[in-house]
Amino acid sequence: MKPTVNVLYLPGTNCQEETVRAFAEVGAQPRMRFAADLLSGAERLDDADILCIPGGFSFGDHLGGGAVAAALLRSHLADQFEAARTRPLIGICNGFQIAVRGGCFGKVGLKVNSAGTFHNEENQRHVVDSENDSPWLTGLGGQTLAFPCAHGEGRFDPGTETEGYRVALRYEKDSNPDGSFEDVAGITSADGLAFGLMDHPERAMDREVRLAFFENGVRAVR
């Protein structure tokens, strides 16, 4: 049996296809979960081995990036979302914003980039934290991976939170595109199951880079 991945598809999600492709390439069975079907009860969010919240502009980023989607996860889908969080979860870009607002990483924030606007970088470089033993990062510690950056609200702010998250990725020195605290480019939950990052490994042209995190996540549930 191939590991299953529920890819949350919300109005405004726009990175679902490359994300689905990446999971499929590493041998998983990704399937889209439409918000309308989840709300009607026709489908569930928590019936897969992995939950993925891909990038995009869910609900048009209205009321703030990920705000409406997070309200959905915390209200009508709260039980299912809680159940999904007991298994590997990855949130990319807008998916990261949703996961943050959904409470996966304690009380941290992702705010408007320090430049005050969207930033696109075709070849952003990221260094994987060596201390984090999250299943999403297995074997990648210390490596520098280049993949695209494209976001406007990605400035990581931990506030006073210290326990709810662990650093997973940092932007390479002097290349912080959004003003994130201590160059943090991605974090995991304290238990390592949830992984969130603003940038887009699923878009990388280099196959090895593109699939590194997805391969790890899928391997962890085989």
């Binding site: 490359e18 969207f118 696109n120 494209a150 878009r203 990388a204």
Partner: peptide, 8 residues
Amino acid sequence: QYDSTVQG
């Protein structure tokens, strides 16, 4: 400010 890599 323009996303040039979406869709991969």
